[in-house]
Simulated assay, not measured.
Amino acid sequence: MAQAIRLCPLVGLVSRRVTPNTKWSLTLIRPRNFSTINNSKSSKNDVSQSENIRYWETFEAELRQLTLIQRYKKMAKEFWYVGIPVVGVTSALWLASFYLIAASGYVKPLVAKLRDYGVHETIAKTLESEKMGPLAIAVIMYKLASPARYAVSIAGTVKAIKFLLKRGLIKPVPPKDKLKEIVLKKVSGKSKTP
């Protein structure tokens, strides 16, 4: 009896057997549950995950009391390593979408909407000008959308930080006094070893 075994990433092992009657039969083997192998590691992750969630809840309570710009600055200071990629991606998406709007010729209906919102007439005339290229129009619209861009960047950063903390992929930065302790322990530990 010949056997052919293949690995299927979604289901597990898929085994095809040729029976003596030369009919194909398909056997699905369930993938092994690897979460029960190292219980010590998983309990350690559960503790650090609960610490991360507690930290995030206090951090979020502090954020609610601040203005939009203050939130932006605080998030940039404490979670810069998450905020910079999020802001870069969202800014690129904003600029690309405004470029597509400008390049496809939907500027005039957009300018009419901007006039309804009270944009100054000189800006509206500049956007409608024939001399302006699509990139220049995109940059002007990008600058006009700054408050919305900041809000989207903050919301995206908050979502990314929550996601990464929940998964245990990042750890919150400890307070200054605890950080000094950690650095002093590492320095004193290195000086003792030859």
Rank of each mutant, 00 (worst) to 15 (best):
Y55A: 01
L63C: 04
Y117W: 15
S97G: 06
K74Y: 03
R54D: 13
A112H: 12
E60I: 06
I84R: 11
L63D: 01
G118H: 09
L100Y: 14
D116P: 09
R115G: 11
Y72L: 02
V89W: 11
S97C: 02
E57M: 02
V86M: 01
V119A: 07
K74N: 08
G88I: 02
K108L: 04
Y106F: 13
A96Q: 14
V82F: 05
G118I: 13
W94H: 12
Y55M: 01
K74G: 06
Y99G: 05
R115F: 08
E121L: 14
A112C: 04
A103P: 02
K74H: 10
E57V: 00
M75H: 05
E57D: 12
F79W: 06
L63W: 04
Y106M: 08
L93S: 13
Y99D: 09
Y72W: 08
G83T: 12
D116M: 15
P85F: 04
M75N: 03
T90R: 15
G88S: 10
A112F: 09
E78D: 08
K73G: 05
K77W: 03
R64I: 06
Y117R: 15
E60Y: 11
I69K: 04
A92F: 08
V107H: 03
L110F: 13
A96T: 15
Q70M: 01
M75P: 04
P109Y: 12
F79H: 07
I84G: 04
H120C: 11
T90Q: 14
K108W: 01
L66E: 01
I101L: 14
H120W: 09
W56Y: 11
L100W: 14
Q70I: 03
V111C: 01
I84A: 05
Y81L: 02
R71F: 04
Q65C: 07
S97L: 02
T67E: 00
Y72R: 01
R71L: 04
V82T: 11
L95H: 05
